[in-house]
């Protein structure tokens, strides 16, 4: 009974909120992933209100089922930002279920020229977040021309704030391009590419990503790479623990191959910059050379 009363009141407040004139002036943004949502908040500032859907780092993004609140957020949004490349198909469904004239949809995949079938972890590509930021700035400026200068300014500061990351990528690339590395999953793939690293065992990673079994030959090749120290670093998804990964981690440790944990979703207390930088720091430590 209590639950129904509380829910009824909450629902009622949802109906009341839009009549608030201040709220009506804000640009409503819905982001499928919180790292894109963050960008919207940074560029939009107090002129926008952002709802990020996947924001719990412990939630498995592949098993996500949207609830009513999420569907409502999508239906009310002026701007929708999402990854695309079949990573978040539920988002497209929600958008189609609540058609809205004049709503802008920004897909990271489309912006960076990626198509379904490509590695979907686009946020690890250093080009993606800046592209999203620019697209959002343009979009906000179009909708709210009065504040256009504000948005451009915030875009500039945001791009400047990413300098430490860009520098670090350049440093690591200069020092370690061409070095062979491996990974249990393709999460880090685009970043490894940007660093010029030679990623091995791709077929193994695709199998894991697609939830099927890597072939015996692929597993053997992976283990050989570790045992013979043909790779300098092993990247693994630190949010996933299973037998395959554990076995490979142990093998890496025994063989003296350093391991670096990366995450698919943004950790709770970090923003995009801190998240990427901390992982690159870990990589630097693993590769063991002093920064130039």
């Amino acid at each position: 009974m209590y639950l129904i009363v509380v829910s009824a009141l909450t629902a009622l407040s949802l109906f009341i909120a839009p009549s608030n004139t201040k709220a009506a002036d804000l640009i409503t943004v819905v982001a499928a992933e919180n790292f894109y949502g963050e960008v919207a908040e940074t560029i939009g500032g107090p002129e926008v209100t952002v709802t990020s859907i996947l924001s719990n780092p412990n939630q498995n993004p592949h098993l996500f089922e949207a609830d009513v609140a999420t569907a409502q957020a999508v239906s009310k949004a002026d701007v929708a930002v999402y990854n695309g490349a079949d990573y978040d198909p539920w988002m497209l469904k929600l958008l189609k279920a609540s058609p809205r004239a004049g709503r802008t949809e920004i897909s990271a995949a489309k912006l960076t020229g990626h198509k379904p079938g490509d590695n979907p972890h686009l946020w690890y590509d250093p080009k993606t977040i800046p592209a999203i930021a620019k697209a959002l700035a343009d979009e906000f400026a179009k909708r709210d021309p009065a504040n256009a200068a504000l948005y451009r300014q915030r875009l500039a500061s945001f791009e400047a704030s990413l300098a430490p990351l860009t520098d670090m990528i350049a440093q690591l690339k200069a020092a370690y391009a061409g070095i062979p590395v491996t990974a249990t999953e393709p999460v880090f793939g685009y970043m490894a590419s940007a660093l010029g690293l030679d990623m091995r065992n791709y077929r193994f990673q695709v199998a894991i990503m697609n939830n099927t079994e890597p072939s015996a030959a692929d597993v053997a090749a992976f283990e050989d790479d570790l045992r013979d120290r043909k790779v300098k670093v092993l990247f693994y998804n630190s949010q996933v623990t299973d037998d395959t990964t554990t076995r490979l981690l142990n093998l890496a440790k025994q063989s003296g191959v350093p391991v670096v944990g990366v995450t698919e979703t943004e950790p709770a207390n970090l923003d995009y910059l801190a998240w990427m930088v901390s992982q690159l720091e870990a990589l630097k430590a693993a590769l063991g050379a002093p920064a130039k």
Partner: peptide, 18 residues
């Protein structure tokens, strides 16, 4: 490559019907 297209088909959502 990533098999998202096929798996996406299976995750219907009653709140996502066009």
């Amino acid at each position: 490559s990533f098999a998202g297209q096929a798996t996406a088909l299976l995750f219907g959502n009653v709140l996502g019907v066009a």
